[in-house]
């Protein structure tokens, strides 16, 4: 079983994952890119939040302006060593100005949560034994950073300049 961590706390997952060939249920749904392409107009006409789940090979830039219709973009880690989603999240936040939820799903490690947080993820689908305390620890192991990223955290260079 998995749980959802959002804004530093466990949260209810309100999105129903919908298989590509299944009928759309009422309420918020989570669909694949293929399903979105197929049923774009129907999905956008519904008066309910739509989430999209992108595989690691699917660049979110191809969504274009449609990106702003989504309340949730779930980025998949097919295996934890596949780091493409780090760039996808960064682009979503910094370039496309996406302000909805970016959720990490799939195979990732505790040790990656801080990097995910830095590039713009704000929700995590975690195993049951992943505690809030672990989550908070993951984000605080490293106090300072050398690079600007999507978290807006002051870099060491900026901290030096402010001394």
């Amino acid at each position: 079983m998995t749980k959802l961590i959002k804004s530093g706390a466990y949260a209810q997952d309100v999105y129903a994952p919908v298989a590509d060939d299944a009928a759309l249920p009422d309420g918020p749904v989570l669909v694949s890119l293929a399903r979105f392409h197929k049923d774009r107009d129907t999905l956008l006409a519904r008066n309910t939040p739509v989430g999209i789940r992108l595989q690691s090979s699917e660049n979110p830039e191809q969504l274009g302006q449609d990106v702003h219709h989504f309340a949730l973009i779930a980025l998949e880690f097919p295996k934890f060593r596949d780091g493409r989603a780090f760039s996808w999240a960064r682009i979503l936040r910094t370039r496309l100005g996406f302000t909805g939820e970016i959720r990490a799903v799939g195979d990732f490690l505790y040790d990656q949560v801080n990097y995910q947080h830095r590039v713009g993820f704000d929700a995590w689908e975690v195993p049951d034994n992943f505690t809030i305390e672990m989550f908070n620890r993951a984000l605080t192991e490293m106090t300072n950073v050398y690079q600007p990223s999507a978290d807006g955290k002051k870099t060491i260079r900026e901290l030096r300049a402010a001394r």
């Binding site: 780091g83 780090f86 760039s87 990656q112 801080n114 990097y115 590039v119 490293m142 050398y146 060491i156």
Partner: peptide, 14 residues
Amino acid sequence: RQWSSLHPEFVFLA
């Protein structure tokens, strides 16, 4: 060296 140290986007490259 500093920029690339634990760069969050580039620690799980191909």
